[in-house]
Nucleic acid binder design. Structure first.
Lengths: 233, 233
DNA sequence: CTTCATTGTATACAATCGTATACCTTAAGA
DNA sequence: TCTTAAGGTATACGATTGTATACAATGAAG
């Protein structure tokens, strides 16, 4: 919930908290005024300048703090999903040896991850709203920072997929590319998930389907058709 | 280029044009003031109220006009790509009869479409910037409108895929779901395409890969593995 | 104990904001 | 021909904005 424990100076923290809250409600980091922000933080307008040069600097600070709190949990969640689905000792069995087992396991991990991911989104909406919003928002500085961040997420994911053996062998470029596509899809869908509560099941399914499609498609293109054919036989 | 030919009243058109331009530069539809808008349109501030109740109404008007000008061209472009890739008379040959031919053709159409799409984006950046921006922007009204619009695009795409025989038989739910995912990916990547000119080739490839992955993955999941295996043999 | 940087406040000001009221012009309908 | 609605302007108002300048409290370093 509170992403800003690291921020020691109280005024700074109050401002960042207020900004995050305002961003979630008005839903843009620069849609509110400096004075409005100060008012919400219970501080004098000028205090802002003690900590930030401008709104970009505030935005970067928030993003950086939030991501510190989110990145690792997301990885943990993926591993958690993986472990919950692995029949004991089967980790070592390669796709070549037992396509079917690995395929089924991959689907399980996939579904579990998606479910956990959206639960996580649900309990941390502010972080996702601000992130996705500003990814295409009005500040070039924030856009750039968030694009870099998406890269990091994708990189984490690629690494995990490899370590957890969730896909047949893929060259690392393709793997990263697929991971990036999955990241984009998941973050995008997280907005729908937040905003359309009545469609949450559907969105969950949609996300799962996209991931399966992307991963299986990439497996096919990497020359693993026969492998998949075996898995599905 | 000019999306607003339909708007007859001059003041209204001037306001919409100014808003579109401002949105592209400041990159948010409500990041500027009513007076700033009027100034850019060369009109009295009050003229705004003659045509719009508030900024949402302006936004909706712009979106609606822009999309009228964009939706059909996008479809044409897809058909154009399809026709350019079809060996004469081969349209009638089903995936079952000749998997390989259809697979190759599908890839060709795919690549051509992606290329044409990004060319289109390049020559209509305003439309895409505003669209993607406001899809996750600060106005719930615009968000909702743009989500509906994305649905329409996806629906068009699904219809075209079916008519043009770009995929092996798929139940219509899956087809729509895949089309939606493709739409999201394409619109998302269109932003990167605009903002990172030095990576355009890479982005183009990325888009192509995602589409192939999504479509082929869905084919696999729909039980067409053997078909694809044949195509790739 | 003094110094001084840090964090926050108080006051002030010109600029800009949204909008209310009133008025002008034009073209269409009665 | 007279009326009336629509599109556009002029002026004016109080509210809010970003920020400059000056000042107060605190705590660490010397």
């Amino acid at each position: 919930m509170s992403y800003l424990k690291n921020v020691k100076v109280e005024g700074k923290r109050l401002l960042m908290e207020a900004a995050l809250k305002l961003a979630v409600n008005t839903r843009s980091l620069d849609a509110f005024s400096l004075r409005e922000l100060a008012r919400n933080a219970g501080l004098n307008p000028n205090t802002f300048y003690r900590h930030f040069k401008d709104f970009d600097e505030l935005g970067l600070a928030i993003i950086s703090e939030v991501m510190d709190q989110i990145r690792q949990p997301l990885r943990d969640l993926r591993r958690e999903a993986a472990e919950s689905a692995v029949p004991e000792g089967s980790l070592s069995i390669s796709w070549q040896e037992n396509p079917r087992l690995n395929f089924v396991r991959s689907l399980q991990v996939n579904n579990a991850t998606v479910e956990l991911f959206f639960k996580f989104v649900e309990s941390n909406p502010e972080a996702f709203i601000v992130g996705v919003r500003e990814l295409h928002g009005s500040s070039p500085v924030l856009r750039k920072a968030l694009r870099a961040l998406m890269k990091d997420f994708a990189h984490d994911m690629a690494e995990d997929i490899e370590v957890l053996g969730l896909l047949p062998k893929l060259d690392s470029a393709s793997l990263l590319s697929v991971s990036e596509a999955i990241s984009r899809e998941m973050f995008q869908l997280s907005m729908n998930y937040i905003e359309e509560p009545e469609r949450r099941d559907e969105i969950c399914q949609q996300a799962g389907a996209s991931i399966v499609n992307l991963t299986m498609g990439s497996a096919v293109l990497a020359g693993h058709v026969e492998l998949l054919a075996d898995a599905l036989r």
